[in-house]
Write a protein that binds this DNA or RNA. Structure first.
Lengths: 140, 140
DNA sequence: CTACGACTTCAAGCTGACTTTAAGTCAAAG
DNA sequence: CTTTGACTTAAAGTCAGCTTGAAGTCGTAG
C-alpha cells in the first residue's frame, strides 16, 4: 500500500499477468522500479505509461516499435526529430491498415449477403484490382 | 506452362515463398492440387482463393479464422447460418479495430505536435477514459 | 517456529506462421 | 551420362510475446 503499488496491483489494473510486467521491464518498456526487500514498488505514473503501451498494442504496434516511439530516445531533452519521423511513418501505416480493414469489411458483407460462390468472384476482383494498383505504381 | 501453374508461379504472384504455399495446403487453406510427376500443378482458380486469403491476412485474420470463414464448411451446399454468424462477429471486430486505429492516430498526432512530456499526460487521459467506459458498460 | 502467500530470478517452454535443412526425385541441357 | 535446377518430403528451427517451472526469499498469521 503506502501510495506505492505492488506488481500484482499494476497487473490487475490492465488485466495482465505479473510475468508480462516483468517482461516489459526486461525489454526496456517499463523502468525498473525501486525495490523494498527485493520487491518491485511502483509509482502511479507507471499506470499512465502502461495505458499508452496497451493502446499501442491494441493498435497493432510491436513492442519494439513502442519502445522506439515512446521510450526510444535519450533522457528527455532533445531530438524530437527522430520521434517526428517515426510517428509520421506510423500514422501513414495506420491509414493503410484502415483502408484494408474497410475493404475486408466490404468483402465480408458481400459474402454474407450474397449466396453463391462469392469467394472466387471476390478473389477475381481483388486480383484485377491489385494488378491495376501495380500499373498505377509503375506510373508514379 | 500448359495452362497450369507450378508452385513457384503461384508463389511469385503473391510474393510468397513456395514453402508458404505448401504450408497453406498442409493446414487446409489451399486444396491439394493434382500432381504431375509428383509435382503440384495449379489451376488459375487458386489465385482467386489466395487473393482472398491474402486480403484477410492483411486485415488481421489468423489462418485459423480464414479457414473457418472461407473454407470451414462442407462441400458447397447448405449451412450459411454458421457462416453468417462468423462473418457478423468478424465485421463487428473490424469496426472495433478501426476505432482503435483512429484513437491511436489521434494519440500519435498529439505526441507529434505537442512538445513536452505528452506521454504521461496521454496515458492519464487514456486511463480516465477507459474507466469512464467501464462505467458506461456497467450501465448497459 | 512453521506455514503461507506473494514475491524474486533464471531458464525453458509455448503458439502462430512460416522457413530452413537434409535427403531424395525428375527432366532437360551440355 | 552427368549436372543443374526446380521440385518433393519430414522434421527441426525461428521470431515475437509472453508463460511456466523450479528453487529460493520475505513477513505476517497462527
Amino acid at each position: 500500500m503506502a501510495d506505492h503499488l505492488a506488481i500484482s496491483d499494476v497487473a490487475r489494473v490492465f488485466g495482465l499477468r505479473t510475468s508480462a510486467i516483468r517482461y516489459y521491464e526486461q525489454i526496456g518498456i517499463l523502468p525498473s522500479p525501486m525495490r523494498k526487500n527485493g520487491r518491485r514498488r511502483y509509482e502511479k505514473s507507471v499506470l499512465f505509461r502502461l495505458a499508452v503501451v496497451q493502446r499501442a498494442r491494441e493498435s497493432g504496434f510491436t513492442l519494439d516499435e513502442i519502445r522506439q516511439l515512446f521510450f526510444g530516445f535519450h533522457p528527455a531533452t532533445l531530438p524530437p526529430k527522430r520521434w517526428h519521423e517515426l510517428s509520421e511513418r506510423k500514422i501513414a501505416e495506420l491509414r493503410i491498415r484502415m483502408k484494408q480493414l474497410k475493404l475486408m469489411e466490404t468483402l465480408l458483407k458481400q459474402m454474407r449477403d450474397c449466396r453463391c460462390n462469392a469467394l472466387e468472384e471476390c478473389g477475381e476482383k481483388l486480383l484485377s484490382k491489385s494488378s491495376k494498383e501495380r500499373v498505377r505504381a509503375r506510373r508514379d
